[in-house]
Design a protein around this nucleic acid. Structure first.
Lengths: 250, 250
DNA sequence: TTGCTCCTCACGTCACGTGAGGTGGC
DNA sequence: TTGCTCCTCACGTCACGTGAGGTGGC
């Protein structure tokens, strides 16, 4: 009436290595040995393994199982918490599936946030990188707002992307003067863009720092000069625009 | 225009340890160093980290990412397979949640299959263990069948559970004669019980071996003698019952 | 000088899996 | 004798996290 390790494992629907691991972490008592050193498991070992495996299948960490022989309040609390964890886990996975689906449908490049696949082909490398940063600090609605804008691409943006780092002042100023009007209209239509709002994951201060770092790293001095001057012009016209000043001072 | 490790990590929404890990596994090139040995990351590093992180967030293993710079056929195939994996993963998690819910509703003991919580209190330790084994080799319908039976508990079962290992032949025979009629009726109502069917995970032969091991390990000689004799009587009455003979011969 | 950041090892985590190398049972 | 099972280390897996111990910058 005694079981070998293999028999025990088969009965419990697991492996000999798993049974040995339960010994190693102290969840399962070592059985008697026969004269040749083979382990001789009993029914009580089988029940214990089945119990451990049941809880393990329910995603209870092995380190918690020792404290869960019976159903008491602590156990119930742990199971309830587990349930919540799994619920949010499922939601995450469903989001991943939605993203995968969008990528496969649009043949999106992989260096652009989900759902930007359809529009990403017209963007510069820096724009795509900035977009990835934005996707971490902006809300879903704000991202959708930006996505909408990208569909109606401003031809001045091509000129901006192509601006060399050592462009002379005249070239910069020329672009500034043509850029300002369309930027004025943009900020009027999307007021939140003139000051970065608090993000879910970051304080407003952190958001500003992150975006400022990204902008200084991603665009060359001439490009940054254009942005800075355009915002300075618009600031003269209204009280908003604090973000632009801060983010380019670095 | 160069970024420290911390700045790079913040921009990408990850940790310095993760960035270093990407170096360790060869996914990310090491940047130039400044005179003091500090790493100086550039925009291209940022874009690479963002790309890696995007794929990693989509559950692509790091070891697969190096081969996935652009979207080609292999990449699509991998993403599709990933999607399937995640789908079945979600289904598993939903099953776990259903089990957790059943346990919490019925305050089920933890050494009994899911959905047997309501009936488990009247079972012996051996019965519960056997039930766990059954839950691995029987189909859902068969388990539901058994669950139904357990609700109308036969008082003879108490006598069977209490039978000592060294019970004399007279005691055994007495129980056998009273047990046979109700067993006859049981097998008539549930024909599949007279021969263990092929399970989804095991061949019929494996199922028989596993159940036979469980029965010999879980019940004492007197109890097994009762079962054996009862089945022998019923076999004389019909051609079925091959399972019972086999499983007790061990 | 103090506190903050950066660096490089080395080891830990979680639940096992994978050999390596040796022995017993039929 | 052959093939099968059992045993015990030791190390590997995966994607990082956690200190330890030391240095540079302001």
């Amino acid at each position: 009436v005694s079981l070998s390790t293999k028999q025990l494992a088969d009965l419990a629907g697991t492996t000999v290595k798993t049974v040995r691991h339960y010994h190693d972490v102290g969840l399962l008592d070592l059985p008697e040995r026969s004269s040749n050193g083979y382990k001789q498991y009993t029914v009580s070992h089988l029940m214990r393994v089945l119990q451990i495996k049941r809880l393990s299948d329910l995603r209870v960490p092995l380190s918690d199982i020792s404290a869960m022989s019976a159903i008491d309040e602590d156990t119930e609390k742990l199971l309830r918490q587990l349930d919540g964890d799994i619920e949010s886990n499922i939601e995450q996975l469903q989001q991943v599936r939605a993203d995968l689906d969008a990528i496969l449908r649009h043949h999106s490049p992989l260096d652009v946030p989900a759902d930007f696949g359809a529009v990403s082909r017209v963007l510069s490398d820096s724009d795509r990188a900035l977009l990835m940063v934005y996707s971490r600090v902006l809300s879903e609605e704000q991202l959708a707002d930006i996505r909408g804008l990208l569909f109606e691409r401003d031809p001045l943006r091509d000129e901006y992307d192509a601006l060399p780092a050592d462009a002379d002042d005249k070239t910069i100023q020329s672009l500034v003067e043509r850029y300002a009007p369309s930027m004025r209209q943009l900020l009027a239509e999307h007021p939140w863009m003139s000051q970065f709002p608090e993000a879910s994951r970051f304080s407003q201060r952190e958001t500003e720092t992150i975006v400022a770092e990204a902008v200084t790293a991603l665009y060359n001095p001439a490009q940054r000069a254009v942005t800075e001057r355009v915002y300075r012009i618009l600031e003269h016209e209204s009280a908003t625009g604090a973000w632009a000043r801060k983010s380019h001072r670095q």
